[in-house]
Structure formats: C-alpha cells, structure tokens
C-alpha cells in the first residue's frame, strides 16, 4: 500500500469515527429538539397531541401556527414563580452536594491506593438499585412513624421544641435531590483532585503555608474545573427533576418538571408543555455558559477550564 493510500484510509477512518456520533446526535438530539420547537407554535389537538401545523382548502395551503403558548407562559406570574422555586431548589441541592462531596472526594484521594478503587466503587454503588426504589425508601425514612423521625422529634422534645414533619415538605425534596445527585459531584471532583501533584502541596508547606492556607491557596483553586463540572452535572438534572418532588414533595413541592409532565400527561397540552421545556432548555444553556465563564475568570481556573 502506498503512503498516500494509507493516509486516505486514515482519513476515512477518522471521518467514520467522528461521523457516527455526529449522526447519532443529529438524529437523537437535534431532530427531536426541532420538533419540540415547532410544537411550541402549534395548537393542541382536541383529543391530545398536536393539531396539524397547516391545512389546505380551495385557496391553497395555510399555516396554522400561533404565539399564544409563549404569550401565556410570559404573561402569568405563576409560571415564573415555579421557575424561581425550581431554581432555588436546584441551587441549594448543588451547594449541599458540593459541601458533602468535597471532603469525601479528598478523603478518597488521600486514601491508600489499594482501597481507593473500592471507595470509588462504593460511591457509585447506589446506582445498582433502581432510582425510584431509592426515592421511595426515603419516603419510609422520612415518614411520620419512622425511627428517624420519631428519634428526631424525641430529641427536639428534650429542648422543648415542637414535633416536626419531614415527609411532604421542601426539606424532603432537597434531601432526595441531594441524595440522588451526590455521586455526580463526587466523581468529577475526585477525578480532578487525584491529578493534583503532591509536590505542589509540599512546595506550599516548605514555603511556610498553614494547611488551611495551602487548601485555600492551592487545592481549592486547582479544583475549580472539577467543581464546575460537578455543579453542572448536579444543577441541570436537579432543575428539571420531577420524580423526586412528586414522591417526596407532596402538596408543597412542585417544580418545573412537574409542570411539564402535567401538560403532557394530565392536560394533554403538548404545545404548552413544549413551550415550558424550551424555556427550561434555554435557561439551562444560559446557566451552563455563565458557570463556565465565571470559572474561567477565577484564579487557577484559566489553565484548566479550557
């Protein structure tokens, strides 16, 4: 085979390698998104689904599209309110996940190498049982007659504080969201932290920095890319969550995901459901852009966030 020929097969291979995932993305992501965007301009059909986007009569073909769905979404404070609540829940979830995951990831990084892989395995172990079963388990844990709730209320009673309800409150939603999303914060943080060169820490110490100063001045800035990656992996799905608030939130915890699933399942209003979903997508893209932009400007972020 000539040199040029082998170069050509290389090029073909490369195109195949890139082309296949691109095709998958086009067919399974771009096309459905386009269909969804089109649906936001359509009318709902009388029996669910979508009314046709055009109709033809003796005068020819007419488009039957509307901006009504966007007007409805933007025109009522109630939809913004539920967006705001989802934003607060997702932000709190991300913060709690980060606070819990950071020490855990550091602990795993510093653990003896022979048990490190085992510890990482333990982090992803919950994925072995079904997501819904794990959330329903929290329903038992937080229920009014559970050992946990009764124990907590007994303790509060000692201090003269009234019994608290845990299940079917915003608290339960946040607990569920943090629990479900924690591994998505731990793993990217761990992947980042275990790449830090121990020589950097030694250098900081040799130059007289206290452990706290070493952490704030060296480890934390270097770990920004891991934190950003983890935060995106937690924040985005938490913002659109609907099963967790549905099961644990009861009467008080509805989020934007519940509103969307309501449009498709109860109201049979696909166009409005699509409109909220498109708004959510745009919002998520904006947040992702914002977070990466902020991360780039942070010290230590610049070199790694690229």
């Amino acid at each position: 085979m000539t040199r040029a020929g082998s170069l050509q097969t290389e090029a073909v291979k490369r195109r195949l390698l890139v082309g296949l995932p691109t095709l998958v993305l086009l067919v399974l992501f771009a096309a459905p998104t386009l269909i969804m965007v089109l649906a936001t301009f359509q009318f709902p059909d009388d029996f669910g689904g979508l009314a046709p986007a055009w109709y033809s009569d003796s005068d020819g073909v007419h488009l039957d599209l509307t901006l009504e769905n966007y007007e409805r979404f933007a025109g009522e404070a109630i939809y913004l309110k539920i967006f705001w609540r989802s934003l607060v829940y997702a932000t709190l979830t991300t913060l709690f996940c980060a606070a819990l995951a950071y020490p855990l990831a550091m602990f795993i990084t510093r653990a003896p190498s022979r048990i490190r892989d085992l510890l990482v395995l333990l982090v992803i172990l919950p994925f072995w049982s079904n997501f819904l079963i794990r959330v329903y388990a929290w329903m038992s844990i937080l229920g009014p007659r559970s050992l946990f709730t009764e124990g907590l209320n007994g303790l509060l009673g000692w201090f003269g504080l009234g019994p608290v309800t845990l299940l079917f409150t915003p608290f339960a939603v946040i607990v569920g969201l943090v629990y479900v999303h924690l591994p998505f914060m731990v793993l990217p943080l761990y992947a980042n932290l275990c790449r830090h060169d121990p020589a950097w820490l030694d250098a900081a110490r040799d130059l007289g920095a206290s452990p706290w100063k070493t952490f704030v001045g060296v480890t934390l800035p270097m770990s920004v890319p891991g934190l950003v990656a983890g935060s995106l992996l937690v924040f985005i799905p938490a913002l659109g969550a609907f099963a967790v608030p549905d099961i644990l939130g009861g009467a008080q915890g509805a989020m934007i995901g519940n509103l969307i699933s309501d449009q498709f399942l109860s109201a049979r209003d696909w166009p409005f459901g699509s409109t909220i979903a498109v708004a959510l997508t745009l919002f998520v893209v904006f947040i992702a852009w914002l977070m990466t932009a902020v991360a780039r400007r942070l010290p230590g972020g610049a070199a790694h966030a690229r």
Partner: peptide, 14 residues
Amino acid sequence: QRRAMNRLWTEIKV
C-alpha cells in the same frame, strides 16, 4: 376547557 382547568391546577399546585 382542559387548558383553563390546567391553568387552575397549576395555581393550586404552586
């Protein structure tokens, strides 16, 4: 009517 009822329902839920 479904749309109107869902509007009320959202209000109830939120």
